[in-house]
């Protein structure tokens, strides 16, 4: 199996330099955007009622398969709901092979894993006006009372499909296809000009 074994290589945003816009007077708070590179990502396909698979995932990630629009994200590994039979497992770099081998050899029925560590880029967005900023290009209801910590959705940001996860009241993870990442950084830093922003490459 060809894996990302030789690490770390270059991240999805290695071509994008740091970006900074000053914090203007009256800003609601500065936005910080960072790349979170080199997590291993596994696309998991499995029927939601597959109890054996669920138990194994819990063993491997310490999370049960989360239900719709949720991400189980405490600890090193996270499981993100993508659809009724689709999840994204996020783990530390180099972990994908072992996790996948565990699942593939477990005889769980119609279950499949595909490594997608390289197919996505990951950004973290922090700052008091994060919700306001993200709402400029995203039609999801991002109200703190609705899009609570642990909410995860697949949706559109500007012109790119993304996975958006709330990690706490003012922090988000934005996962996008790697070829869209330079666009997403340009889009989000531009949307943050009103507050002041720093984009730090990995």
């Amino acid at each position: 199996m060809v894996s990302s074994a030789v690490l770390p290589g270059r991240s999805a945003l290695s071509q994008v330099a740091a970006i900074q816009h000053p914090v203007p007077k009256g800003s609601a708070g500065k936005i910080t955007i960072k790349e979170a590179p080199f997590h291993d990502l596994i696309n998991l396909r499995c029927q939601p009622d597959n109890k054996m698979a669920n138990a194994l995932i819990k063993k491997l990630t310490s999370h049960s398969l989360p239900s719709a629009n949720q991400a189980a994200q405490a600890g090193d590994r996270a499981v993100i709901w993508l659809g009724p039979d689709e999840w994204l497992i996020m783990a530390e770099a180099g972990a994908a092979n072992t996790i996948m081998a565990n699942i593939e050899t477990a005889n769980l029925g119609h279950v499949a894993t595909t490594e997608v560590s390289n197919a996505y880029g990951i950004l973290t967005v922090n700052g008091k006006p994060s919700r306001q900023m993200l709402a400029k290009h995203c039609a999801i209801d991002l109200d703190a009372g609705v899009f609570t910590s642990g909410t995860a959705v697949q949706t559109i940001m500007g012109h790119a499909g993304i996975i958006l996860i709330a990690t706490d009241e003012n922090s988000f993870t934005v996962i996008g296809r790697s070829s869209f990442m330079p666009y997403l950084v340009a889009l989000l830093t531009d949307a943050s000009i009103e507050y002041g922003v720093e984009y730090r490459p990995a």
């Binding site: 719709a68 629009n69 009724p84 039609a139 999801i140 959705v153 949706t155 559109i156």
Partner: peptide, 11 residues
């Protein structure tokens, strides 16, 4: 039926 109410542009 899976994700809830979303804008038409997502469909």
């Amino acid at each position: 039926p899976h994700c809830g109410a979303r804008d038409e542009t997502e469909f």
